[in-house]
Simulated scan of single mutants.
Amino acid sequence: MMLRFVSIGLWLVALGWTCSGQPDPCDVPLVTDSGHKDNFTVVDLARELYACTMIKMIERAGLGPMFREKGPFTLFAPYDLAFGFLPDDIWNKLMSNNTYLRELLLFHTVPRLIGSIDNVYNDELIETMLPGKNIRLNVYQIGKMMVGGRGAADQAMGVTGRITACGGPVIDGGNATNGEVRIISNVMHPVPPGDIMDVIDNDKQFTELKKLVYLAKLQDYLKAGGPFTFFPPNNNGVDKLSRDELKKLEHNTTLLREVLLYHLLDWTLYASGSYDGEVLVTVQGESINLTVWYDSLWVNGHTNARVVYQDYNIYNGVLHIIDKVLIPPIIWQKYN
């Protein structure tokens, strides 16, 4: 990841060179003349907004002609630094698998004009050029940004907006002759693979959680309901339960159900809409709180459950994967 940040950093340093007549930092052949506004495409606009990595990926995937010759489009283009936060395995897959890259780019593209981003409503779903996959727009009316991690990068870029696209704050944008470009501070990844149960059923990091969900008979609720924010513990998190704790949960499905619902919110909260010290009421009824500690997001204090992967997009909400099962003492005591 360090080499990727260095590469992206060089592009960002190069931004000042364009103004002094030096080579274009995006280093992509310009087909249309940005000086002629009657043929100023979304590719040209993305170039002006310095979405250099996005442009390079569009060309790499062979989608340049489509974005120049067709439309209208609304292109959600992550700023360069956002790509540096992708896990190394995802970045490598994008660079080696052109089909995977095209799918991600089409997921960032809406085949129509959205218009003013200020007119969207919370949890609005917008159909993309990837069939069956929608971008979720959220409006967060809070005055604080999450500090650390991507939050620090957002602050450095002057992000103050509360409108997000799959968790990425919309920070800039403009209009072209064949569409619109909206600059976002996150790469919208992963492309939603399905609903909560699709992920739990098929992702191997949730095999232990899957057993508990079916034992509690919550599978239909998690599949059909929403939108949700779910904090699912991975296998390592479930393995941290003591033998006695696991036995009690497996033999008392009422307790198990309450514990699992304690991991669930009945609305969509992305990391960019959260803040340090935020208190959230769960579907179970008790509250959890969020803590930012050394650039990591934690649930119920920095010695409890750490969010190991945030903003996992799904059809009916978002997942924040944690490394520990949350057991509220008041519930545990009620069944002892």
Rank of each mutant, 00 (worst) to 15 (best):
D276V: 09
G277A: 15
E278T: 14
E278S: 11
V279I: 15
V279F: 13
V279E: 14
L280D: 09
L280H: 04
L280I: 15
L280Y: 11
T282L: 09
V283I: 10
Q284L: 08
Q284I: 10
G285V: 12
E286I: 11
E286Q: 14
S287T: 15
I288Q: 15
I288M: 13
I288E: 12
N289V: 10
L290S: 03
L290P: 01
L290W: 03
L290K: 02
L290M: 13
T291K: 08
T291V: 14
W293C: 03
W293Y: 11
D295I: 00
D295H: 12
S296C: 04
S296R: 10
L297K: 02
W298D: 08
W298E: 04
W298H: 08
V299F: 08
V299K: 06
V299I: 15
G301F: 05
H302W: 06
H302I: 00
H302D: 14
H302Q: 14
T303G: 10
T303P: 03
T303R: 09
T303W: 07
N304W: 02
N304E: 08
A305S: 02
A305H: 01
A305I: 06
V307I: 07
V308Q: 08
V308H: 06
Y309N: 14
Y309G: 06
Q310H: 08
Q310K: 15
Q310C: 07
D311F: 01
D311C: 04
Y312L: 05
Y312W: 06
N313P: 12
N313Q: 15
N313H: 10
Y315M: 12
Y315I: 13
N316D: 07
G317A: 05
G317W: 02
V318G: 08
L319S: 02
H320F: 11
I321T: 11
I322R: 00
D323E: 02
D323W: 00
D323G: 01
D323F: 01
K324A: 07
K324R: 13
V325L: 03
V325Q: 00
L326C: 02
L326G: 05
L326Q: 06
L326V: 01
I327Q: 07
I327S: 07
P328L: 04
P328D: 14
